[in-house]
Design a protein around this nucleic acid. Structure first.
Lengths: 143, 143
DNA sequence: CCGATTACTTCGAGACTCGAAGTACCCCGG
DNA sequence: CCGGGGTACTTCGAGTCTCGAAGTAATCGG
């Protein structure tokens, strides 16, 4: 009878997400970010290859028009830049500006400080990441 | 240096939430539910005392006008009912109808079946619930 | 009874999301 | 070379969600 346990796990996961979002909200507002723009900002890791719009939409589980809308806000604020992909000029590649990298760091820093997860020990945290990874890993493919 | 681990945990938590929402989306649509109405429906446990609007808004991390909006949708679809609290007639108490309980069960059932967490063993799940509980428990008070 | 506070609703504006339609580009067969 | 089909993205328009401000009804303390 693991059904009850799964239900509890889903609920706890959702609750953690809501609590974290709630606590970070004020910090996002200081940077004039909304949940949607902050999410996109977080998803663009400057240490990785600049993603295309399509790639990024996949990461954010949103569709192309929505991502265009969100990216317009980030570019208008000078946090991100779009440039055509030389290899395929239909595609546009998204990268953060220096200001974008600064704001992204600040958002992550604040989230790490405010999330209820900050209470857990290093050991517990690694166990948690391992468990979540076990659930997510096999399914991260396209279908 | 647990900072990186917390960041990974927050990201994994967020990712799991998005994947679960994404997979359940079609089931919600069949029941003519949106994420907001489904969330409210989930939060009203028929086995517990019927919550007031204020209590429910707290659970959902939303404000009063928003909850009124969402509850109107649920009551219009015949899934929930509002009745004045006899003890304090300013307050309204929310309960699910029989149809509401049916739909709620169906949504939870589908979520449990579709969430990536369903892949984990019973042992892993209990560990996960325990870890999440450890993070959430001390902070579930009002402030 | 009266003023202050609380719970909720209504109203109006802003933000987010998405389907449909349009543009620019790649690729392939002829 | 040229046309047709498919892909990546944007624009447009409509619908949904969220929230602050203002209004109503009820409780509480004096």
């Amino acid at each position: 009878m693991t059904r009850r346990t799964i239900e509890a796990a889903v609920a706890a996961n959702h609750e953690l997400f809501l609590q974290t979002s709630d606590r970070v909200e004020a910090v996002l507002a200081e940077h004039r970010l909304t949940p949607a723009t902050a999410h996109a900002l977080w998803a663009i890791d400057p240490d990785q290859a600049a993603p295309s719009m399509k790639e990024l939409a996949g990461r954010l589980y949103c569709n192309a028009p929505n991502l265009s809308f969100v990216m317009n806000q980030l570019t208008n604020r000078g946090l991100a830049e779009r440039s055509p992909d030389p290899a395929d000029r239909r595609s546009r590649v998204v990268a953060l500006t220096e200001e974008g990298r600064r704001v992204r760091s600040a958002v992550i820093e604040a989230t790490v400080a405010l999330t209820p997860l900050a209470r857990l020990s290093a050991e517990d945290l690694e166990q948690l990441v391992s468990l979540l990874g076990k659930a997510l890993d096999p399914g991260e493919g396209p279908a």
